[in-house]
């Protein structure tokens, strides 16, 4: 009952934040279409390419949203993806099959999430410190596994190569290219996985006991405990979920890049956090939605896509723009928070 009331109270500003996000995405995309229409930005495939490159990020952002709902944060995700990619690449080049290797990666995600969750939930250490140590651990561990760039080629593992190059065609939205050939739009399997994850997490957050308790813990850990929720276990669950989804994302990411290296996915945690924040997830916890995070990812993807299409802008621009957007949305959140506090 209390939760429902709370949801109603914060309904207004949350919907506004989500609306701002969706409008921002449309404006950005429309701007891209107008500026770079001649370079093929208007094709449906460009949009699908954004999904293909960011399939991993969508999974990671879903996990990040769950963690941020509890009021925590997990900055180990980028490094964990680097470690996943390296493990996949090295494991397969040692002759382990694709399916067992993916299983191992997911298992590592579970164990890593368990440790982080235990430290945050049961030992009450600041999430930032824990996940920062986790980040350095994973990044260093990637270098311990192998310091070189390892590529996954067809020779190394045919199954994984086949997965990566499977095209899932979409029956509409094609275009005729300048050679007169009809191009059928397609996505990669990673996108399908990411969308399934998105829908599952959406349903989980909305309809399951665990999903609702994430909101309750983030809204107020004390009242959640008084209602009889096991706050420690729920917090641990959130971090485990984040690391598992991150490992799923790592596999998607690896399907897209087909290589492992120490600097892989550098700063991806930043993209995931900014996606969630831009999508309307409050940093203080208790408010948020994976649909918003999904649009946040799309905004990030559109920015880097525009910078890439332009071709002349320096490679550091996407980083700066993402940080600037994050800054703007954090300030908006803070202003909304202050207004809400004044109303009370």
């Amino acid at each position: 009952m209390k939760e429902k009331m709370k949801a109603k109270k914060s309904f207004n500003s949350n919907t506004i934040l989500l609306l701002i996000t969706i409008v921002l995405f449309m404006v950005l995309y429309a701007g891209g279409c107008i500026a770079y229409g001649s370079k093929g930005f208007t094709h449906f495939q460009t949009f699908l390419n954004i999904l293909i490159t960011n399939a991993g990020l969508i999974c990671v952002a879903c996990g990040m949203t769950c963690v941020m709902l509890t009021g925590g944060i997990d900055i180990s995700v980028g490094a964990l993806i680097a470690m996943d990619c390296m493990m996949l690449a090295v494991g397969m080049s040692k002759g382990i099959g694709a399916v067992p290797m993916v299983a191992i990666v997911l298992l590592v995600g579970v164990v890593f999430g368990f440790v982080q969750g235990f430290l945050v939930g049961y030992l009450e250490i600041q999430p930032f410190i824990v996940s920062m140590a986790g980040m350095f651990f994973c990044r260093g561990m990637t270098a311990v596994i192998c310091t070189d760039q390892v590529s996954i080629t067809e020779k190394i593992n045919a199954t994984f190569y086949k997965w990566a190059n499977t095209k899932v065609t979409i029956p509409f939205g094609g275009y005729v290219n300048n050679k007169g050939k009809y191009m059928v739009p397609y996505v990669r399997p990673g996108v399908i996985v990411a969308l399934i994850v998105l829908i599952l997490i959406f349903i989980m957050l909305r309809y399951t006991k665990f999903g609702r308790s994430l909101y309750a813990v983030g809204g107020s850990a004390q009242s959640a405990a008084m209602m009889g929720l096991n706050v420690k276990r729920i917090k641990m669950g959130a971090y485990m979920l984040s690391s598992i989804l991150c490992s799923v994302g790592g596999v998607c990411y690896c399907l897209n890049t087909m290589a492992g290296s120490v600097t892989r996915a550098l700063g991806l945690e930043m993209d995931a956090i900014s996606s969630a924040v831009i999508g309307g997830t409050l940093l203080t916890g208790g408010v948020g939605n994976v649909i918003g995070s999904f649009f946040g990812v799309l905004i990030n993807g559109t920015i880097s896509s525009i910078v890439k299409t332009n071709g002349k802008l320096a490679s550091s621009w996407p980083n700066i723009l993402t940080a600037a957007l994050l800054f703007i949305f954090i300030v908006i959140q803070s202003v909304f928070g202050a207004l809400r506090a004044r109303k009370k």
């Binding site: 651990f137 260093g140 561990m141 311990v144």
Partner: peptide, 11 residues
């Protein structure tokens, strides 16, 4: 590049 592992454990 491997040193962060040990530092993370110490933290």
């Amino acid at each position: 590049i491997q040193a962060p592992v040990y530092k993370a454990i110490i933290v």
